[in-house]
Amino acid sequence: MSPERYGDFDFLNLYYFIAVPVAVRRAWLPILTKGAIRHGVIHGPQNRREYEEWLDNEIYNHLVEKSQEDSEIKGAYVMEEMPVEVAAAQAESIGIEPPEAGAVLTMNKNAMRITDSQPLLNMPLMLLKAAVELDFDHIKTMQTAYALYAKKLISYPFTVQNTIPFGVWKLMLRNKKNLRYNSKWGKEAKRIRMPRRHNFRNGECIYNGFGIVTTGLHPTDLSRDEEKLYNLIVKSVIDAFA
């Protein structure tokens, strides 16, 4: 088959679903003759770097598109929260007065609430924080986040919302206990409290998404990059519930 993103998505979904840690050699074959198959299996892709760069861009663009579509489909009213300091920095960059905490900015079906507390990460905030604190480019962040999601360590990371529905708060009562074993943030996790904060108000819909949270599974066999991003997400969870 020729390289195309949906074939790759099918392969990656199957690979992560089976979750068998085996080495896999990929080969895109323009013709399915015995000689071409044998050559592809033995030698792999001819232009591996070019192919992987193309695939990274396709996956990144596809996930961004899907997260935007999901936010439009799942609810009539999508609420996102932005910390005061982030809103102030953005306002300063375009030369306008920064909004105060509690202000709600609306546009079509989306609303941005300015908050002086720390919200959960969503996709834009995760990309921003990973770039500033970890020196990750956006594609690297997306790939690493998907790997953590595939390992069932975090909730779906490519979401627009970052508020905390009541149902997620109840799940986090259990999940926070496992954060105490985190090598970097364990001591902070022992002191976090669970506020009764939720986003089901002002006409919002229960099908709206929520910010990125840990799932309660203990992480094992993480790469260095996965560990860095996982710790960043753990810190955001602790900050949001502190």
Rank of each mutant, 00 (worst) to 15 (best):
E100W: 00
Y230F: 13
R113A: 13
Q46M: 11
S155H: 06
A36T: 04
G75S: 15
G209C: 07
E133M: 09
F210A: 15
W54F: 06
N175H: 12
V78R: 11
Q90P: 00
W185G: 02
S236G: 05
M194C: 05
L222C: 07
G203D: 06
L148G: 03
I31F: 02
I42R: 15
Q118A: 10
K177I: 12
L32M: 11
R197N: 14
G75L: 08
A88D: 13
R193I: 11
G102F: 07
W169C: 09
R224N: 10
P165S: 09
K187E: 15
T214C: 14
Q68I: 15
P219N: 09
L134R: 02
N182C: 08
N182L: 10
E92L: 14
M79H: 07
Y156T: 11
A189Y: 05
D135Y: 01
K129D: 04
N231E: 15
D70L: 15
E133K: 05
K190D: 04
K34I: 09
Q143T: 14
M172P: 00
L32K: 10
D116W: 00
Y149F: 13
P157E: 08
P119S: 04
T33Y: 00
C205S: 13
L232T: 07
A147E: 08
Y6H: 09
K152A: 14
P83K: 12
T220H: 10
E92F: 07
N231P: 02
Y149H: 14
D56V: 00
E85S: 08
M82L: 15
V22D: 02
L14G: 04
D137T: 02
M194G: 06
E226D: 07
A101T: 10
M112V: 15
P157W: 04
P98T: 11
T33V: 04
I37R: 11
F166D: 13
I42G: 01
S223T: 15
L29V: 13
F200T: 05
A131L: 12
F210I: 02
E92D: 12
G35D: 10
E53F: 01
R26F: 01
L153M: 09
N208M: 14
A27L: 08
W169S: 12
A23N: 11
T214M: 07
